[in-house]
Design a protein around this nucleic acid. Structure first.
Lengths: 213, 213
DNA sequence: CCCCCATGTGTACGGCGTCCATTTTCCCTT
DNA sequence: AAGGGAAAATGGACGCCGTACACATGGGGG
């Protein structure tokens, strides 16, 4: 009946890794219902523990939410990395770089559509957002989604597709564009758009970024 | 001692226009704390009424939130209209049209930064968003913010700044770009950006939209 | 004039986040 | 090996929230 790490009996007290269990439960909740669904009591219930036990590992509900948010951000980065890794070879390095940018955009959009709860949790946290006290361990993936986009743009510069020099700032433009589209597709004026149409807009958006730098 | 409409004594029963009072209270709450701060009980408290009274006018807390959201959306539209109305004359009609697009973008960004609570409430409602059952009366402003952007783009086409024909879709691109930037400035990776820097990015973004259509 | 029904009140329930005191169990020290 | 201290979890309580149901009220149409 070993549920978690080690030789303990798991009955009461000494859970094994409650922090992880709570985080996992929180992520599961966020997947289904977005940030508002990350309810401390429910997370503890799923971890098979009394509500207050959570306070040994998270200072508050918001602290748990922050951890879940970090996990969601990491999941997005993984999705992008996976898409990037699955890319087919191209004729030229320039084409490959172009495809890289498209891959990032496509993965971003797909994540927003298929993992809406996590996407909503990753962004749009709460009102008073200055919670990023000290770099909140990402832990899982090495690169953040934002960094991934940056390197995709770097490759476009390296291969001469994009003129150099304007990089600091270009990633903000690209990110804004794709993020905005994702938000609008999820619950904005475009929320009734068919996935195919959204992709079409995404395609034009990428083209716009390539041209307009 | 007449608090509201008419000759009633206002003591108990017959409030005057409770629905409006609740909505105003809700908007006030949203301004300060975003969507999560729109708390039914607090709204009724501010309206000087018992919690359940709200249920005569809103089916649930979420219904109240939807109404507040509509008001926030309308406030955004008003902000854009005001900016548009305050524009100085230009040499050519084409310049005027260009300035119009910039005005829309600038007003959007400024609204997001100065009325963050309302902005957050306007978008990013909740998880299961299909609440737009039947066109939810906007009531206040005639045009929506989205329509305003559309007409700004139309003027660019009319004056020949933008090639015609690609209009259906172009507003999505423009909207995505500015909306994404707003989100990122508010609580994304760019949330530590100085307002001036954000404006600079906005400027480049508009230029990008003009070029890339 | 009187009755009706829209509007607001009262009471109540369960769920939530969080505080405080208490118990249990691991493991480190003597 | 015995024991003690701290970490981890429990137990109970409080106030706030959304919401359901029954009840009171009083203004306006018959």
């Amino acid at each position: 009946m070993g549920t978690a790490r080690g030789h303990t009996t798991r009955g009461t007290y000494r859970h094994g890794d409650l922090r992880r269990a709570l985080l996992d439960a929180g992520v599961a909740l966020a997947r289904v219902g977005g940030p508002d669904a990350v309810v401390l009591r429910e997370a503890t219930r799923r971890a098979g523990v009394v509500p207050n036990a959570a306070y040994r590992h998270f200072a508050s509900r918001r602290a748990l939410l922050r951890a879940v948010r970090a996990a969601a951000l990491s999941a997005l980065a993984v999705a992008i990395e996976t898409e990037l890794a699955g890319m087919r070879r191209r004729r030229s390095r320039a084409d490959f770089a172009r495809a890289g940018l498209r891959a990032v955009g496509a993965a971003y959009l797909r994540f927003a559509r298929t993992e809406t709860g996590l996407f909503r949790t990753a962004f749009a946290i709460g009102a008073e957002v200055p919670e990023a006290d000290q770099a909140e361990r990402t832990g899982n993936s090495g690169l953040s989604a934002f960094q991934l986009l940056g390197t995709a743009l770097d490759r476009l510069v390296e291969t001469g597709v994009l003129p150099a020099g304007r990089r600091p700032g270009a990633e903000y433009l690209a990110w804004s564009a794709v993020h905005g589209l994702a938000m609008l597709v999820i619950d904005g004026p475009l929320c009734r758009l068919a996935p195919a149409d959204a992709d079409a807009i995404g395609e034009r958006l990428v083209a716009m970024v390539e041209k307009g730098l």
